Every structure is written in C-alpha cells, then in structure tokens.
Computed example of a mutant assay.
Amino acid sequence: MSILNPNERNQNLLLLISAMGLIPIALSYGLFPNKTLTTMYGFSVENINLTHIMRAVMGLYFGQIIFWLIGLGNASLKLPAMYSLVVFMGGLVIGRLVSIVLDGIPHWILLVYLFLELSITIIGTFLILRKTHN
C-alpha cells in the first residue's frame, strides 16, 4: 500500500466529496423529474422531451461521478479525473453566471450550487497546479 502525499489526499477528498455531493443532485434531476423539480424549483416536467433531457443530464452526471471515483483508486487517472472535475464544475459556473446576467437571480439553492461549484473549481485548479509544479 502506498502512502499518499498531502496533495494526493486532498485530491482524493475533493473527488470523493464532489462525487458524493453530485449523486443526490443527479437523482433529483433524472429519477422522478416530474416530482422533484416541481417540488424543488416550482416548475412542471410533464413533457416527454424535457423528461428525456433531464434523464440524459442525470446520465451525464453519473458518467462524471464514475470517472471521479475511478480516479480515486487509479493513480494514472487521478490527474485526468481532477481535470475533468475542474472542467465540469467550471462549465457549470460559467453557465450559471451567463444565466444570472441574462435571466436574473435564480432560486436560492441554485446560488448555493454556484458557490459550491466555484469553490470546487478554484480548489481543484489549485491542487492541479500544485501537482504539476512538484
């Protein structure tokens, strides 16, 4: 068993927290979107096309989650998993900021998501830079 340095432990922790935190969000988007999205955000998902899109988003989230968890146990995939985490979360941040500028302030929980995604993007970038400079 290898001993992880502090940066690797922090990368593992960030990947694990991100994966575990995204599971309930993915499920809320895709498992029963007509119930959860109405309850959480106050809009109805009655159209089969919107239900399909929300379930595809759930699949996208789970694809990322699986890759991050693989990166936990595979040293050669840890850095790519970190890059994908930063790109995924950073992409969400950019999309949310564009929406705030164009559409206005969303539901408070979405602002919490923005704060968490921005934090993960910044921390992940810092951990990648520390890894690549050592």
Rank of each mutant, 00 (worst) to 15 (best):
L60C: 09
I70M: 13
W108T: 07
A26P: 00
G21P: 02
F126Y: 13
N10R: 15
H107E: 07
I66G: 04
G90D: 05
V101I: 12
T121F: 08
I109F: 15
P80W: 04
I53N: 03
S18M: 02
L92A: 12
L79F: 09
L4H: 09
A56R: 11
R96N: 06
Y113T: 12
L92I: 15
A56K: 04
P6L: 09
H107W: 05
I128W: 06
V87F: 15
L79Y: 03
L116N: 03
I94Q: 02
M40A: 07
L27K: 00
G104W: 08
Y83M: 04
I123F: 14
L13M: 10
L77G: 02
T51N: 10
L110M: 14
A26E: 01
Q64N: 14
M1N: 12
I25N: 08
G63S: 12
L79R: 15
N49S: 12
F67Y: 15
I100H: 07
L129V: 12
L16F: 09
M54R: 11
S44H: 14
M82K: 06
I120L: 13
L37M: 15
F43E: 05
M58T: 01
A81W: 12
N134Q: 15
Y113K: 10
N10V: 00
V86N: 03
L13G: 02
L13Q: 07
V101Y: 15
L16S: 06
A81M: 06
M82E: 09
L37I: 00
F67D: 04
L72N: 10
E46S: 14
M58S: 02
L69P: 11
W68D: 03
T36M: 03
H133V: 06
I65S: 00
K131N: 10
I53C: 00
M54H: 12
L77Q: 08
V87H: 02
T39A: 13
E8H: 04
G73K: 08
I3Q: 13
L15N: 08
T121M: 08
G71E: 03
G30N: 03
D103L: 11
T51A: 07
G63H: 03
L111G: 07
L97Q: 05
G90I: 03
S28D: 08
N12M: 06
G63Q: 02
G71S: 03
V86E: 05
M58K: 02
M82P: 14
T51S: 10
T38I: 09
A56Q: 07
K131H: 13
H52W: 06
T51G: 10
G124Q: 09
N5G: 05
F115M: 12
F43C: 08
I3W: 12
I53R: 04
R55N: 02
I3M: 08
N74E: 12
T125S: 15
G104M: 04
L127A: 08
T38P: 00
L69F: 07
P80E: 01
M40F: 06
L60S: 13
L118G: 15
I53H: 11
F62L: 06
L22M: 15
P24C: 02
I100P: 12
E117Q: 11
V98W: 11
V101E: 09
V87R: 02
L77M: 10
P24R: 06
S119F: 13
A19M: 01
V98E: 08
A56S: 05
I94G: 05
H133G: 08
